[in-house]
């Protein structure tokens, strides 16, 4: 059974709520500050993705977060209720696409790359390529598993940190 479970309506403002709860739970579990920062960012990315997916396909369905504090690991599962694999970008090796590929950071021609070009008239509204949040998660988390949701609905992003716990720190909170 998860240590803490949370369901929230698919609204951007609640992503912060989930972040605060994950931070509090990780602190209570005695997770070192560096890893706690990673947890904060990873849970934010996973929840923001789930909110977007639910809003597209199942706007009245909640996002589900489970925080599992085990003796030698900390796991967070974030589940959406949208179309399975939405906003999951696959790389050439079948794993998750890298941030570098999604952001087009490896120039393939002699033309200046996009960040040096002055003729980029793309209508950019700050929308990032779908899948970037997961690419960031993969860079942060020890173990990431992306699976089909229960009963074939939605996607579950499971993130696990293997951490040397500081028992003394855990007791203070």
């Amino acid at each position: 059974m998860p240590t803490v479970e949370l369901r929230f309506a698919a609204l951007d403002g609640h992503v912060r709520t989930a972040r605060m709860i994950a931070t509090a739970v990780s602190r209570r579990a005695g997770i070192p500050v560096g890893a706690a920062d990673e947890i904060k960012l990873a849970v934010t990315e996973a929840c923001a993705r789930a909110v977007r997916v639910n809003r597209k396909h199942a706007p009245t369905s909640p996002v589900h977060v489970a925080l599992i504090d085990a003796p030698d690991s900390f796991t967070i599962k974030v589940a959406d209720c949208g179309r399975t694999w939405d906003e999951v970008a696959a790389g050439p090796d079948g794993g998750l696409a890298t941030a570098s590929a999604l952001l087009d950071l490896e120039p393939t021609s002699d033309d200046p790359p996009w960040w040096a070009a002055t003729d980029d008239d793309s209508d950019d509204e700050g929308g990032f390529p779908p899948g970037l949040g997961l690419a960031l998660i993969e860079g942060l988390v020890d173990e990431v598993e992306v699976t089909r949701g229960p009963e074939g609905v939605g996607t579950v992003v499971a993130m696990t940190w293997h951490i040397g716990f500081d028992a003394a720190l855990a007791k203070q909170v």
Binding site: R19, L41, T44, E45, A48, G126, F128, L132, G133, L136
Partner: peptide, 8 residues
């Protein structure tokens, strides 16, 4: 705190 939306 900065997330991928901020990077975007």
């Amino acid at each position: 705190f900065l997330d991928s939306t901020g990077l975007g």
